[in-house]
Amino acid sequence: MPFESLSAETLGNIYVGLLGLAVLLYGILDGYDLGIGVLLPPRDEKCRDAMIASIGPYWDANETWLVLAVGLLLFAFPEAHSQFLQTLYIPATLMLLGLILRGVSFDFRAKVVQGHKRRWDFAFKYGSLLTTLAQGYMLGIFVTGLRTDLWAQGFALLAAFGVTAAYAFIGACWLILKGEGKLQEKAYKWARRGLVMLAAGIIAVSLANLTLHDDVRDLWLSAPWGIMLMAIPLTCFALLLMCGVLLKKLPEANGKGEWLPFFIALMVFVLSFAAFGISYYPYVIPGKLTIMDALSDAGSLRFLLVGTVVVVPCILAYTFMVYRIFAGKAEKLSYY
């Protein structure tokens, strides 16, 4: 068997890295399309058509990163997976129902009679919203170390709001990149609002985070590591500030730099995720279960790693290819 020389510790780190990659890519990719779902305006059908057209070729593959993430958690860290989903049974169910509504609405809306189309759009919007809220809530409870007390619930609600704002923001930035005319104007407006909510959300979640685990607080408030780590939130806020300025200036720039807000949103996601990862490593469930506690059999992990090192680069390559093929402004969806 290849990778025989890798120790269990190394394997654990590799798999937690893969898991992180899958979660991060899921957050960014399904984040923007769920965000667009949340933003769908109830009274403007043309706008909804254009918004949904901008995610048409991608959403399916975007959602697959969630399956990979939950799969990796399942077989690399079965104990963590089972604790996580047992505690969060109801929110996980609601998230799945939201994803079902969102996913099927996408196809039904294009194929049913006019009167029903609105209903499916409604299902699309509220399915997306249910998903983002549930995901944020689950993230919140997860960060507390699967606590269920009142303070943890409050934190989770804050996270639900924060994640929804983050998705709506990156969704609006995607629309700036892919949309034109009236839709793009709206997208600028949404992005400006989303930016404020996101910034507020990041501050609130970060501060609340310091109260949850002593070692996390000690890490961030220690010298010299804490000071060096402060570069992450500082960069993050510098980027958000820059984005705020850009969102005011770009509408007059004749289409130049339309990719910048999305790029900044992407960087903010990466930085926030990095801060999250640094805070909780080496735990797979914060404060409760470490990588090594939860790691499954090394032999099975090696067997899967063989495929992973071959296949994951291919997945990234053809995902990149599809984004290249459909680059440029979104066109009306047609099966041609």
Binding site: T64, V67, L68, G71, L72, L74, F75, A76, P78, S296, D297, G299, S300, F303, L304, G307, T308, V311, V312, I315
Partner: peptide, 13 residues
């Protein structure tokens, strides 16, 4: 899980 996990993993990947 040591048997089911990798098989499901290969399916996803």
């Amino acid at each position: 899980g040591n048997v089911a996990g990798p098989l499901l993993g290969y399916e996803v990947l």
